[in-house]
Simulated scan of single mutants.
Amino acid sequence: MATLRLCELVAVPGAAAVTLDVAAGATAALAAAPPIGTAVARVVSGLAAPVAGRVLVGDREVTALPPSQRRIAYVPAGGALLPHLTVRRNIAYGQRRRERVREMADAWTATVVDRLELAPTLELRPHLLSEAQRFRVALARAVACLPEVLVIDLPTGPAGGGRLTDLVGRLSPANTPGVAVLVCTADPGSLADVPVVAEVGR
């Protein structure tokens, strides 16, 4: 596991630069209006190129790397679950980027399903789930590939009104420092248990 570092990162033209560190095992919030927060999340995840600045995972600069090589997982706003797939297949879809031994990834996915209490939902499709359950499925899909960093685009606070750190604490294997979690949100007040480490606007 490793620290996420953003160095003078500008995600969209005209936005302020973001510099922050999120240590392994820590959860921190970036306060930004939804378009900018989403842009930062996509740039950190490798889905868009930055205007300027760098993204580092530990000592590795990943700014120019494709998503599959970053070891950064992404939960988009709303979860973006695939509606035609069951919960089981949505979670398995996250393993397409895994780089570790299959048996380890399979065992870890089973652990996450148990920790997030998703076993009763595995054969259901997303439209049959509550908002809170869909959010948990999106988290499970993201961490199935054993990332070092997790980026969550969460404009309006945690689904179901729960404490985000309670869920995040279940997303790392035992005896590891834990995943570094960056939450991009327009509503940091709804994340009372998550410190705001940076704010960005135009």
Rank of each mutant, 00 (worst) to 15 (best):
Q133G: 11
R134Q: 15
L139T: 08
A180C: 08
A142W: 07
V149D: 07
T185W: 09
F135S: 15
A140C: 13
A186M: 01
V143H: 00
P155D: 02
V183P: 04
L146I: 07
D153G: 06
S190E: 14
A138I: 12
V179E: 03
R163D: 03
T176S: 13
R170L: 15
T156M: 12
D187T: 14
L182Y: 08
D153I: 12
G178D: 04
G161H: 12
E148C: 06
V168T: 08
Q133I: 10
P155C: 12
L150W: 12
L182S: 04
P188E: 01
I152Q: 03
A159V: 13
L182G: 03
A142N: 01
V151G: 03
R141G: 06
C145F: 00
V181G: 09
S190M: 12
A159S: 14
A144Q: 00
V179C: 09
R170Y: 01
T185M: 07
E148K: 05
P188H: 10
R134P: 10
L167V: 07
G161V: 10
D153E: 04
V143P: 00
N175P: 00
L167S: 06
A144M: 00
L146Y: 10
P158R: 14
N175A: 14
Q133V: 15
G169C: 09
P155Y: 10
P177M: 03
L167A: 07
P173V: 03
P155V: 12
A138V: 11
T185Y: 09
A174K: 09
V143M: 00
V168G: 05
R170M: 07
L146D: 05
D187A: 15
R136G: 11
P177T: 07
A144R: 04
P155K: 14
G178K: 14
I152T: 08
A159L: 09
G157V: 08
L164C: 03
V143G: 00
T176D: 00
L171N: 02
S190N: 12
P177H: 04
S172H: 02
I152H: 06
A140T: 10
T156H: 15
V179A: 13
D153W: 08
V168C: 06
L150Q: 12
V143C: 00
V143A: 01
G162T: 12
A144F: 00
A159N: 11
C184T: 13
D153K: 12
L150I: 12
G157H: 13
F135P: 02
G157S: 10
V168W: 07
A174H: 11
S172P: 01
V151H: 06
C184Y: 03
L154Q: 04
L167H: 04
P155I: 09
G162K: 05
L146V: 11
G162E: 05
A174F: 02
A174L: 13
R141S: 10
R136F: 05
A159T: 10
V183C: 03
G161F: 14
L164H: 10
P173K: 03
T156N: 14
A159C: 05
V137G: 08
T185E: 04
G161Q: 08
G157K: 13
R136H: 13
V168K: 03
L171D: 04
P177R: 13
G157T: 11
L150S: 09
G169A: 11
L146P: 02
P188L: 05
D166K: 10
D166Q: 15
P158K: 15
V168S: 08
P177Y: 13
T176K: 05
A186T: 05
G162F: 04
A159D: 02
L164S: 04
Q133T: 15
A138E: 03
L167F: 02
